[in-house]
Design a protein around this nucleic acid. Structure first.
Ligand SMILES: [Mn+2]
Ligand SMILES: [Mn+2]
Ligand SMILES: [Mn+2]
Ligand SMILES: [Mn+2]
Lengths: 229, 229
DNA sequence: TAAAAAATTTAGTCTTGTCTAAAAATATTT
DNA sequence: AAATATTTTTAGACAAGACTAAATTTTTTA
């Protein structure tokens, strides 16, 4: 039975591995865990003893298969609980993360599978992040920053990069939600701000916002040319 | 913010105080917490420092008002989560206790009040135990052991004393549930076994079972005599 | 490639919560 | 009221998980 702390470290390493190819460095983990590098070293050694990570002195750590599975199950629990809070208890999406940080450590396979069924097997959490299945598999969604689209391209908002309360509340205020269809009307060359049309409403967003909105890769808008078959 | 351990000790003391009038002795707490007397002494001193119990060396501990409120809130959480598991996730009543032991330590007032509303403000948990309200008040139900009833008396099952898995499963097997009407048909003088009628079905239970079934205090069955008034 | 900077590990300390063994206080018997 | 038994506290140790400061290794810069 792993401690809360061990589970949190595994989760942090998992998230770091998603971004980079190499192993998670001591300092990166320390930053993510808001702790000191020396504490991280202690923990990496312990997780290595338990064969949950492969760790080489001064070289950082990589999750083992076993470690990856545990990390995915913690993430599964986190996201299912967030979904429960929003869908069943009417929490808003900026209120659920801290509570899910606690709930993700409750140990009971039956509980989490029942919860999954109760929620009717959601594929993504309230922030658009995919929920791993029982075996830890997660469909890695292909997505790009809205800021990479060209004028007239449109796509669907699948998730967001920044999940801070401030950003979540900004989106609520602008009535931007996961699943919305977003069309790029015009891009201002001077400051890269974007005129967008979201679910019919047209308005302006800054480049910073556009970089934190991740949308489906838009299907190529083929030039209307007659095919000669 | 209290630790899980501190909360568990407060809850244990609360339960002990319900049974006795005096303070909880070190040994009683040790038994309930399945720990050593010396560990209990350490914790009682700590809880006394935090003004959560009134503790006198060699005399045991009593909850302070503050301590009592915290204990009641932990019990409230425990029982609401048990209710959630049974009513919403279709757990059986013998499966929920261990999971509730974990869930009762989740810190979020909004969460527990939302859960309360989601469950439509239940008054009792799946085992018939009363759920304290937000302020820690709990309606102390008046109840007696079924074994104290006389022949022909009847009452309603409100809760059970023993909550072991074995007993809960015995009740399931016999289809005995909280809220059932139980009538004492006959008491066998030799072994005090009781012929009962429960929701129409008539069968025999042992004295031990009858001592663990707590029923409403039955209204006096007045002798049928004409009033001269 | 040697020096400087940055990252990482080690050594030692602290807190929380647990334990065992021994000492002290209280309760029960003779 | 002693003597004995039981309960409770104290003393000292340990493991987990964190920290600071110092030492070591790796990376970057000159
Ligand atoms: Mn989250
Ligand atoms: Mn999320
Ligand atoms: Mn319970
Ligand atoms: Mn219960």
């Amino acid at each position: 039975m792993l401690s809360f702390s061990e589970e949190n470290y595994l989760k942090a390493i998992y998230h770091i591995e998603q971004l980079q190819t190499e192993g998670a460095s001591t300092n990166t983990v320390a930053k993510k865990m808001q702790t000191k590098a020396s504490s991280v070293t202690d923990m990496l050694q312990k997780l290595a003893d338990k064969r949950l990570v492969v760790y080489k002195k001064y070289q950082g750590a990589l999750l083992s298969a076993k470690g990856k599975k545990i990390a995915a199950s913690v993430i599964r629990k986190h996201r299912l609980w967030e979904t429960f809070l929003v869908n069943k208890l009417n929490f808003s999406w900026d209120e659920v993360h801290d509570i899910a940080e606690q709930l993700e450590h409750i140990k009971s396979e039956k509980l989490i599978d029942s919860l999954d069924a109760f929620l009717e097997f959601p594929r993504v959490d309230p922030h658009g992040d995919p929920i791993p299945d029982k075996d830890g598999n997660m469909t890695k969604q292909k997505k790009v920053m809205l800021s990479t689209l060209k004028e007239n391209q449109q796509s669907k908002l699948v998730t967001i990069k920044d999940s801070s309360d401030n950003f979540l509340r900004y989106l609520d205020k602008k009535q931007i939600a996961i699943g919305n269809t977003i069309k790029v009307i015009a891009i201002e060359p001077f400051d890269k701000s974007i005129q967008v049309q979201i679910e019919g409403r047209e308005f302006m967003i800054t480049e910073e916002v556009a970089e934190n909105l991740l949308v489906e890769i838009p299907s190529l808008t083929l030039p209307k040319v007659k095919r000669t078959n």
